[in-house]
Nucleic acid binder design. Structure first.
Lengths: 162, 162
DNA sequence: AGGAGTTAGTTGCGTTTGCAACTAGTGTCG
DNA sequence: CGACACTAGTTGCAAACGCAACTAACTCCT
């Protein structure tokens, strides 16, 4: 068997075994953690995480409200799904769509009293899950390291020089 | 404003700001990365990642095949969805269900020639995406750190002592 | 042996997602 | 102004997912 320990130009795009392993672990861990969070919410009779995400963003601009596309940007949801997610939130009385003066096609979404209540009701459950799943198993250093790595992954250009 | 810098018993379940931030970043990063991988596959006219996952596991036991529940364990997919995922794979001729001698209710799933081909066709696209998304932006140390942290998250009991 | 409980896998149903087509209002540039 | 390109949001349809109910076979226990 031939060992190739030097870097070969035509292999540049192949991930190392370590990289591959890290990816697989990231995939699995996120999958498991997310499932646990969703399970915790459901166990408490609460709606899924995506609802919280939207409510949280809306609560940050409770008076002025947000355009749908703004929510989409913050929550990383495409407009098709968002449109219907807001339908559901609205039909549950958690948010309210209002016509937008400045832009006749769009609308402004505002969170309602009930929406704020639900958000506050979800937070403790969510918070406890985060603490159990991230805060407790990891050291403070690891938490910092995790945040830093995820930041790099989200903005690859701030990463290592090539 | 009152600053609380010492640990208070009744607040144990609340994540620190850092923990919360790390979780949000993890959520977002994984979401973005996964979407990019799926997009890369689709761009090349290839099926979604979940197909690769299953084909990969099956290729590891190509001759003997795997029971469905075994696949489910490895790929972290519940049986409901798995059953239908295998339906799709089978109707595309990528895998084949065979009656199981040892257990009359179950069946053994084996990968086909065509399945192996597809798997090999998907790998370069997948591999390049992993390299671009993980390998390139991160240093070797970060990759190792990422793997270690994800491992800890998957098996909380091997984490820090409390 | 035989009945209770358990496990493997499928199926039906309602919800959610993704994709593409569509409406309607905005902006731009001649 | 008026044609063209663009953006915000909705809707229809097909695929995928989650849940619960179901069949069938295995295990255990007496």
């Amino acid at each position: 068997m031939q060992l190739v320990s030097f870097s070969m130009p035509f292999m540049e795009n192949v991930p190392s075994k370590q990289t591959e392993a890290a990816w697989v672990l990231l995939l699995r861990a996120q999958q498991v953690l997310l499932a646990r969070v969703e399970a915790a919410l459901k166990e408490s009779g609460l709606p899924p995480l995506s609802w919280y995400d939207v409510l949280l963003e809306l609560s940050r601009d409770a008076e002025s409200g947000l355009r749908q596309y703004e929510i989409g940007e913050r929550v990383l949801l495409n407009k098709h799904n968002l449109s219907r997610l807001i339908d559901r939130l609205e039909s549950d009385g958690l948010v309210k769509r209002e016509a937008c003066d400045l832009d006749g096609r769009g609308n402004v979404v505002k969170i309602s009293k009930k929406g704020l209540q639900l958000k506050q009701q979800m937070w403790p459950v969510y918070a406890q899950a985060i603490q159990e799943l991230i805060g407790e198993p990891l050291t403070v250093t690891q938490v910092r390291s995790l945040a830093s790595i995820m930041n790099t992954l989200l903005e690859p250009h701030t990463g290592k020089s090539e």
